[in-house]
Design a protein around this nucleic acid. Structure first.
Lengths: 189, 189
DNA sequence: GTCTATAGCGCGATAGAC
DNA sequence: GTCTATCGCGCTATAGAC
């Protein structure tokens, strides 16, 4: 695997556990096994690094979600798979991880203009796909709710981000599972 | 107002906007109008400062919530007031603010052991009160849901924290209102 | 209780050799 | 593309005068 990807992998893991503000070139240097100056060769500034990180994550995440959307399942089954994506991040590694887009959302005022725009773009792209899943569920009868699917998509995504942060704060994946189970119950009427 | 309170007020506003990691003694020094060394006289270390901040916020917040719980209203009306607390924080000041306990939840790995314990304690105390509001709503018929009220309390709180972060990321209080409106619709059956 | 002064460190970033 | 070396800054924290 090339150095650039190794740097991004490490940076992403750091954002997921301690956040972008607490992450440093020194951390990445130690983990990847190259010097700080070499990181600057690939990513001239921290803002560039974060921008690349968000762009890569959006490509990866939307690819996974697109496969879920395009599969041959009920809306409710797709929603369950979507939720499972977040739970798998939470369970990853030794220490609980939060969604990188949730962490960067919390740090949105300090990450710089370009990363900020990328994070907003991620939110928009995600909402479109999640709304499509929910709308399908309503049409095929596997989910029950009133009003625009986009509004409910905002609820579901906000819930997943918040529940991850709280669950991690409590050191409890069980808490996350309880909360998402509750959501599914509400949407099954 | 005494210096200690001024320092805590400023620190809290900073946590709500940029987070604990981005907040520095220099920021507080500039805003309060005293020197960095004077802040250390009141709070020997940043960890002490954060610990006091969370303790004070819990006392304040639970006091407000207790008044809501003890009032003569339906469970649904109380839930609306509880939600309004979060929206008022989001609208506060020039730049959108997030809930300080949500911000510290995101930064939970880097704030130190004592503040971490206080944040967890806040979550527990909050859940008890929110569950009581929801349970009352179910009994008086103003809210409809199945299963333990504690599980739904986790859902509601997670949603509020997450929706605040996402709404702030999008620079849109309207997003928060849409999402919380959607939650109330789901709980009204 | 507030001040000046400073220690000591880690940060992001750059210059230039190889 | 990676290295050594270093710059300049901001950070938390401390010592000691007033």
């Amino acid at each position: 695997m090339d150095t650039k990807s190794k740097i991004l992998d490490t940076a992403q893991a750091l954002v997921e556990t301690i956040g972008a503000n607490a992450m440093s070139y020194q951390h990445i240097s130690d983990a990847v096994g190259i010097r700080k100056a070499s990181i600057h060769h690939h990513f001239p500034s921290k803002e560039h690094l974060l921008e690349s990180l968000v762009a890569r994550y959006e490509t990866y995440f939307m690819g996974v979600v697109d496969r879920i959307v395009g599969s041959d399942k009920t809306g409710r089954a797709k929603l369950k798979e979507y939720i499972a994506l977040f739970e798998s991040t939470l369970r990853e590694g030794k220490r609980d991880k939060a969604c990188p887009m949730g962490m960067l959302g919390a740090e949105i005022q300090t990450i710089g203009e370009k990363p900020r725009r990328r994070v907003r773009h991620f939110y928009s792209e995600n909402d479109r796909r999640l709304a499509a899943i929910l709308e399908q569920g309503r049409k095929d009868g596997s989910l029950r709710f009133a009003g625009p699917a986009g509004a409910l998509a905002g609820l579901v995504f906000g819930l997943l981000e918040g529940a991850m942060l709280v669950a991690r704060g409590r050191g409890s994946v069980a808490h996350f599972r309880t909360v998402t189970g509750e959501l599914l119950k509400l949407l099954e009427g």
